[in-house]
Amino acid sequence: MKPITLDTIVKKSEDIFTGTIDDEMVAMSIANGKYYQLNKTGSIILALLENPHSIRELCETIQCHYRVDGGVCREDILEFINEMATLNLIIVI
């Protein structure tokens, strides 16, 4: 897999179902039958990834929601996206 950078465009995998229960988001993979619980920020990101977005765009949106240092935000989101990609929850376009 190519390294994910701020300009990489990603999208939620078609094999993932998501839903919100009692304000908590769950995502489930059809392929492996596993489910994942997402925190609030992860939920926002996965909801955004219903459509393709670059990591840079995701960072900008998250910074609109939270008061967070730009560098920290980019670092955290890159880490999260890499983890999601490893689990096949998102695809790189």
Partner: peptide, 11 residues
Amino acid sequence: LIGAAKFKVLW
């Protein structure tokens, strides 16, 4: 059980 924990158990 609430939220994701409830979904997990049901699944």
